[in-house]
Design a protein around this nucleic acid. Structure first.
Lengths: 142, 142
DNA sequence: TCTTTTTGTTTACAAATGTAGATGATATGA
DNA sequence: TCATATCATCTACATTTGTAAACAAAAAGA
């Protein structure tokens, strides 16, 4: 995914690092490296490399704490997720979006309250939803 | 995204090609190259390279038609999309999935009938949905 | 103080990706 | 039949990504 403000893209491995920082909040590199070791089996060097790249890309900021560095996310998880979600949708056929979202929803674990929100959202969308959605994959084809 | 049967991953550029093939069905390379030229501004060579890579990855098959090649998708769009959607969800915090799907739905254009399906799906999910969903980003953290 | 241990910074390096030119074979129109 | 346009295949090449070792500075324990 590509991040607006910074215009840097987040690779899959980097995303794993961001998740940890988002969850743990400001935290030291050893803590992050540890998590990566456990979750992904990555050597410490690997974690450090990813952290550096994310700093260079402007997605993480650092602040020294004695000899070590404290990392912090410069973009909120919500913003990043929404951008990623929109990019994902933008890359696929518009006609397929509805069914795809249905499949994703069926696979996702969603809380009661989030489901309630979804119901309200859908009810609202229904008011202006089109009868059918056309494929937008090819130019001048129909 | 990574495709099960073939175990090859589809890059962003390649995905653009697949979309065209899925939409146009079996079609000649010039036709595809043309679309890519229009949609993406890619030189013919670029389109051809992508086509070759997709064939090598086992995502497209070819059949000769005179001097040219007819390309055809070896994986259905639906399967590919569902896999991509699941991978996408797998890469993000479980706790955020509900809200993210809501954001995506709010941005997507969805037909009346797909919305109806969504309503039914949600109603069904509500019966077993948890009160809350925990973050699954870090090991032994709570 | 001297040796380990930590931790940040450099360098490494293969594979994947984005993007495309060069070449060679083959139709095709003149 | 000869020049020309078409394709398919090969080669190219910079960047990004995944994964990590090497090195250096500094702190901590002996």
């Amino acid at each position: 995914m590509r991040v607006a403000e910074t215009d840097a893209s987040i690779s899959d491995s980097e995303w794993a690092v961001m998740r940890i920082v988002w969850t743990m909040g400001a935290c030291s590199s050893p803590a992050i490296v540890d998590q990566l070791q456990q979750q992904k089996g990555w050597r410490p060097s690997t974690g450090k490399t990813l952290l550096s790249r994310l700093v260079k890309k402007g997605l993480l900021s650092t602040r020294p704490d004695g000899r070590r560095l404290i990392y912090q996310a410069k973009i909120s998880q919500t913003d990043a997720l929404q951008q990623a979600g929109r990019e994902f949708l933008a890359a696929i056929c518009r006609k397929q979006q509805g069914k795809l979202l249905a499949d994703m929803m069926s696979k996702a674990t969603i809380s009661q309250s989030d489901l309630d929100d979804l119901v309200a959202l859908i009810a609202h969308k229904k008011q202006t939803a089109p009868q059918s959605v056309a494929c937008n994959c090819c130019s001048h084809m129909n």
